[in-house]
């Protein structure tokens, strides 16, 4: 790790100014991923600008059922927030499916959105990685890729976005609030925050230098909808997703689907909103056959590799199970 300066910003303008004057500065929030990457030599900022005291640490519920989640709200606080648990239980569950209790009590909303892939090559600076060193190559494609992406990949990168929280946020139509270097505020759909790798896998988000995520806004959940988050992983806790599903579902009296939102984790370089599958399912019963057909359409463009092709059927089966359980719940303890 190279030596760095540390600055604790007291307000957003100061944070912006500090980053503006130092080209190799980075924002520090919970640090659970950034410090990790600094130790590995993957990240090497010259200055860390601590943004945890800028006042973005509140969860503000609105009367219309929506909520504004501050960028530096701790994951554990967010998952435990009574309003979040009541209105967006799938978000709580997704957060609680991620990492560990101690990591969640340090990690923040914005940091979680911006965490980097856990691809073993990205994290090993002695090996090539197009994301870390553009043009150096992607050994994962011919090497270790079981945990990596099947959707949205390119010949240059097959990394997976590793998080859980953002998958639920994607299904909840989240908007990300950003403050630009010039103080200008803007909001963008969470899906639009992330950029697919293409031939520039080092570029992961649309954020520009000095852009600071200040919060995440959720509109009210659809009235009468049920929601769930389920994660499949190699052990029963404290592991990244092989595949995860966040689902919001509302059915009509006859059991047909009125409204459905599906987001997949563990399969793509970003939380993958399965809009094709969603539109296929509207007006239909969530039967295995219908889910199969809808997910078949969703996954038509998938680019599986030998060791992760199982994720396609697994994603389909997991979506089917989640939709089934939302309509006929079963205790799975």
């Amino acid at each position: 790790m190279r030596p760095f300066a540390y600055e604790r910003a007291e307000d957003p303008a100061e944070a912006a100014a500090l980053v503006a004057e130092r080209p190799d500065a980075a924002f520090l929030a919970g640090g659970t991923n950034l410090v990790d990457l600094m130790k590995l030599g993957v990240a090497g900022p010259g200055t860390l600008v601590d943004v945890r005291r800028l006042g973005y640490d509140r969860v503000e519920h609105r009367d219309d059922g929506g909520v504004l989640i501050g960028a530096t709200v701790k994951n554990s606080e967010l998952a435990g927030d009574p309003g979040i648990r009541r209105r967006f239980p799938a978000l709580s569950r997704a957060i609680l499916a991620g990492a560990s209790g101690q990591l969640r009590s340090a990690a923040t909303t914005a940091g979680n959105l911006l965490q980097r892939t856990r691809c073993v090559y990205f994290q090993d600076v002695t090996k090539p990685c197009n994301k870390r060193e553009p043009g150096s190559g992607c050994p994962a494609i011919g090497g270790s890729h079981r945990d990596l992406a099947v959707l949205g990949t390119s010949d240059h990168c097959v990394a997976t976005y590793p998080g859980d929280m953002a998958v639920a946020l994607a299904a909840l139509d989240a908007l990300v609030h950003v403050r630009g270097l010039d103080g200008e505020a803007r909001a963008l759909p969470l899906e639009d925050l992330y950029v697919l790798p293409g031939d520039t896998p080092h570029r992961e988000t649309v954020l520009e230098r000095g852009d600071l995520i200040t919060g995440v806004e959720l509109p009210a959940a659809p009235a009468g909808a049920a929601m769930h988050y389920r994660k499949v992983r190699d052990r029963w806790s404290y592991a990244f997703a092989l595949v995860s599903v966040a689902a919001v579902l509302r059915t009509a009296g006859d059991g047909t689907i009125d409204e459905v939102r599906l987001a997949l984790g563990g399969v793509a370089p970003r939380p993958w909103r399965a809009r094709t599958a969603e539109s296929e399912l509207i007006g239909k019963l969530p039967t295995p056959e219908n889910v199969q057909a809808a997910m078949g359409a969703e996954l038509a463009g998938a680019r599986p590799l030998p060791d992760n092709a199982f994720k396609l059927d697994l994603a389909t089966d997991l979506v089917g199970a989640v939709l089934r359980d939302l309509t006929e719940p079963e205790e799975d303890r």
Binding site: V120, K127, R235, W236, S237
Partner: peptide, 24 residues
């Protein structure tokens, strides 16, 4: 997991080399 191209183990930390957690 052997990494034939490089000759080492591709996974080499406790996040990617899983041992049983309490929940297991």
């Amino acid at each position: 997991e052997p990494d034939p191209e490089f000759g080492d183990f591709a996974n080499h930390d406790l996040a990617s080399y899983h041992v049983a957690s309490n929940a297991d």
